[in-house]
Nucleic acid binder design. Sequence first.
DNA 1: CTTGGGTACTGGTCTGACCAGTAACTGGAA
DNA 2: TTCCAGTTACTGGTCAGACCAGTACCCAAG
Lengths: 259, 259
Amino acid sequence: MAFTPVQKVSAYESIVEQIESAVERGELKPGDRLPGERKLMADFSVSRATVREALRVLQATGLIESRPGDPRGAAISQYSPRLLEKSMSQLARLEGVSRGELLQFRLILESSACLLAARDCTDDDLRAIEQRRDELVRSVAEHGAERFSEHVGRFQAAIRSASGNRLLEITGNVVSGVMTDLLSSRLSTDADRLARVRRSAEDAERLVAAIRAREPERAAAIQVLNIYRFYADDLDGHERDALAPLIAGAEETVGSPID
Amino acid sequence: MAFTPVQKVSAYESIVEQIESAVERGELKPGDRLPGERKLMADFSVSRATVREALRVLQATGLIESRPGDPRGAAISQYSPRLLEKSMSQLARLEGVSRGELLQFRLILESSACLLAARDCTDDDLRAIEQRRDELVRSVAEHGAERFSEHVGRFQAAIRSASGNRLLEITGNVVSGVMTDLLSSRLSTDADRLARVRRSAEDAERLVAAIRAREPERAAAIQVLNIYRFYADDLDGHERDALAPLIAGAEETVGSPID
DNA sequence: CTTGGGTACTGGTCTGACCAGTAACTGGAA
DNA sequence: TTCCAGTTACTGGTCAGACCAGTACCCAAG
């Protein structure tokens, strides 16, 4: 006969669970209002401090939002990737994930996004991508490397969005954000950086051409090479080795204009 | 001249930020202890309720752990993918990500993991994979579909771990977990399920052979087909179309024993 | 050296209070 | 009738002080 460990659920945990499951079951939808803390305290028959701890947890996990003074009470939030961002950057930072691993993971995501985008993006998607590309190219021509990261971020985000897969899109956005965050301190010399930025802008044009021509493999390969070359100088030998095959494959594909 | 919006940080938020940044700066490492709540309340010169709300947030984001009665105070936790899991399943559930999207994303992750594992897993990794495969095959032979999901989960987790990329590993684990979670209710008939399970066990053997033979593309393709076929019946036509090209490519690769 | 209480603490919860801030109501001006 | 400003009744944020059940640790008895 097997016994199960007793599990004592604290009061605030129970409240969190009840509200969470109400949201999961769809009884509470984004925009809906929770009662005020004083009402909740009566409903759950606990003190206000306990209610507040539960609400804090729900707020920390991005499930609800509240503003002081608002008589309408806390609101169920629209989904936002904030928590995913936090947990990803936590993973990358605390778990000591190396820059090489981060880049490798990003290459996987970005190349997949390009592949999918080239295969089945809509005309609207394509227009959005081309607009971002124009802004990027113009910004590089006018301001050089200055506002590059902002524009290239938007350009690549448009591609991820065009992939049609929101998991891929959001995860890609997060990883890309974490990367620029973590590597922003390691800026190369201005001249070097400008050269990278110019090459990246050219790659953007090739990439859009490949997407427009519906050449998935080629689009993916261009993006892999583009991102890799942009960060390659920051890697050490070992990290570069781990990426070598991906890169080699990409170079081969890009080498052949139409395969 | 540009003004910046004033941002009023509440007391508990300020506490959270201070402790978080102490961890990020490495001043607090996993296992280290925070002072008790009464000490913290004096240090930050706030009331205990405020300290507790801050600690609740830190606990919800997985940064600290505490047990009632422990005179040593709360402890900085070892990293755990709990938060990532939570945010991923939140994304999949709340954002209304379709099963097709989820599967597509998983195929991307799993095939990449197989690719990397086949390319550069260590002998230890390989041994671990083969052990999981043996357990899986034996379980299917003895108990049929009964404990399949548990064993196949461990088998695939071993492959992800062998990929050498922890981001890929953890993300893959999470997505796979979310998927089994979300689809566990949709069980097919027993006979049908048994057939799927048997085919999956055979694929596992082929997959390990490909990894052992260091055939990355082949390994990736086998896994794509394996997972796709396992879930294909649950998809509708539209969802299947979105995956078609991935599958077609995989079938081609698997078709050629050594390419 | 082990072991069983005792003790001094912990975190979880409660009560009751004050404050700054917001939404909505109200009534008078246009 | 429309519009604006002051009022009001609430909100969430914070504080103080208290009690309880539970834990780690110490120390004395075996």
